[in-house]
Design a protein around this nucleic acid. Structure first.
Length: 504
RNA sequence: GCCGCGUUCGUCUAGGGGUCCAGGACGCCGGCCUUUCACGCCGGUAACACGGGUUCAAAUCCCGUACGCGGUACCA
């Protein structure tokens, strides 16, 4: 029944609009996207907004902008439309109702009128009798209030009267459901463990399971690639596919991203406690480059088949294959993410780096005491001086803040180590000579300094280190003389004098 | 509890019967370079969960145990 030859690959990313796009969700989207593109297929975005209690207004926009940030856009979806729309489940309610009715008519589903409390009572009773996992299923439904036990007229009466009801799947035990998962191989469940899953909730909305099966079929989805948390609901879905007489799509359940330390699924709470970015928004605010986030996420559970680790979106798309995805949960290691970011920052052209840093540089502008922003050549100079020593574009403004503002303080340990008895005097003379010099550039600054050192019979380091401190406030950084050239004679002299005054 | 999935250096992983006294990357440590800090380069540390099989041979196949994770909702 697999008419494989002609069927074009279609996958979907189906998030629930309940908050910001989580990086786990982004990774799922990415894998779907890679798979679709690598097979010349279509990537669909479907919004699963069937839980009205958890709905968050801006979530859909947040999801779209998160995807856009990393450079992927759906081929079909809630925004871009497509021939299988609408792509929001809340707008497809009529369709689900129709199919649910079909299941009832054909004996695969039934009405249930029990209240939540009544179900709880049933569960407690069975639990106290030793049933390890009492559920609403083939063994308990006989004692509940539903269209399987009520006479037909009574069911009619209740429906007409407007009683609350849900529609449940009639899941019968005694079988075994086996399916092939692209990542895990053969997976098998006994039907005895499957409950009579609610398909239509009392508010008329479908549950995930019903909507998902109907939509995947209706939207001609060929491959379902999603997180492992869905693996155990596959049997329910297969029961539904069978009831409808449909061929299930192929499955691939990805390993979950775990908290550092491996304790549970990566959660916002846990991550926040450690200051880890866990939503796309947070990554962005923390200054991560989208390329780094994508690259990092892609390699969490997937191996490209070669030792290289830096890939563009297109390269990953080309290399992607589901059977190179492993099955075990993976921990979120922010240090590796940082390394990826550093790799990208270092690989940017100077102009690109400046562009990525623009947002943070602008933040400095107002407080700036050195007007370097007008001079693009200088900006480029600073960027190339700083590029090999930063991991984030924003460090141009932060770590490299001394290029734009006089140091407000001097690194204490460095002062203790480098600021000697004679520093003040040496630096004063150096400042004098700098100001008196006819020309000022890196070479000049260095020549003057070395001449002074020789004259005093001191090592150049005796002056270099205190000057660096005076000029930047910190012990590390680019070549001192290049830095001085960029800053200019006046700024250097001013900063040196200031340090002499402050540090004595 | 029950059901399912998983388990190679601290982390991400390669490997799928002999080429593995296990390879790469992050991290960490050391060295070179540099009168700073980085980059870069060189080197080092560190793993097949455990127990039984199968086999001439097992990290690789089978079984069991342990541990971890997921599911067990009118949430997705």
């Amino acid at each position: 029944m697999t008419t494989s030859s002609a069927s074009k690959v279609r996958v979907r990313f189906a998030p629930s609009p309940t908050g910001s796009l989580h990086i786990g969700g982004l990774r799922t989207a990415l894998f779907n996207y890679f798979f679709a593109r690598s097979r010349g297929g279509t990537f669909v975005l479907r919004i699963e907004d069937t839980d009205q209690t958890r709905f968050v207004r801006d979530a859909e926009r947040n999801i779209l902008s998160g995807l856009a940030w990393v450079g992927i856009r759906p081929d079909e979806g809630s925004r871009e439309g497509g021939e299988f729309g609408p792509y929001r489940q809340s707008q497809r309610q009529a369709l689900y109702a129709l199919y649910a009715q079909q299941l009832i008519d054909e004996g695969h589903a039934y009405y249930a009128f029990d209240t939540l409390d009544e179900i709880d009572v049933m569960r407690e009773r069975h639990a106290s009798e030793g049933d390890p996992s009492p559920q609403y299923d083939a063994v308990t439904r006989g004692e509940m209030t539903n269209s399987l036990v009520l006479p037909g007229e009574e069911v009619q009466r209740r429906l007409e009267r407007g009683d609350e009801y849900v529609i449940r799947l009639k899941a019968d035990p005694g079988g075994r459901i086996t399916f092939r998962d692209h990542i895990r191989g053969r997976v098998s469940f006994s039907t005895s463990g499957i409950d009579d899953q609610v398909l239509i909730k009392s508010d008329g909305m479908p549950t995930y399971h019903l909507a998902n099966v109907i939509d995947d079929h209706d939207m001609r989805i060929t491959h379902v690639i999603r997180g492992e948390e869905w693996l155990s609901s596959v049997p329910k879905h297969i029961l539904l596919y069978r009831a409808f007489g449909w061929e299930p799509p192929e499955m691939a359940h990805m390993p979950l991203i775990m908290n550092p330390g491996g304790k549970g699924k990566l959660s916002k709470r846990h991550a926040a406690a450690q200051g880890l970015p866990v939503t796309v928004e947070q990554c962005r605010q923390a200054g991560y480059e989208p390329e780094a986030v994508v690259n990092f996420l892609a390699l969490l559970g997937w191996h490209p088949g070669e030792d290289r680790e830096l890939f563009t979106l297109d390269e990953m798309t080309e290399l992607f294959s589901l059977d190179r995805v492993s099955g075990g949960g993976v921990q979120f290691d922010v240090r590796k993410l940082n390394w990826f970011n550093q790799q990208y920052v270092r690989g940017f052209s100077v102009d690109e780096l400046l562009e990525r840093a623009e947002f943070w540089l602008r933040g400095l502008h107002s407080a700036s005491t050195v007007d370097l922003f007008k001079d693009e050549a200088r900006q480029r100079r600073i960027a190339s001086l700083m590029q090999p020593r930063i991991a984030f574009a924003k460090d141009l403004a932060e770590t490299g803040g001394y290029f734009f503002e006089d140091p407000a303080a001097y690194d204490e340990t460095a002062v203790g180590k480098r600021w000697k008895e004679d520093s003040a005097e040496l630096l004063s003379v150096y400042a004098d000579r700098l100001e008196a010099a006819s020309a000022f550039d890196a070479e000049q600054a260095e020549a003057i300094l070395r001449a002074l050192a020789e004259e005093r019979g001191a090592g150049a380091g005796r002056i270099i280190h205190p000057v660096r401190l005076a000029v930047s406030g910190v012990p590390g950084g680019p070549s001192l003389f290049e830095m001085m050239e960029v800053l200019g004679k006046d700024v250097c002299a001013r900063r040196i004098r200031k340090a002499v005054e402050v540090l004595g």
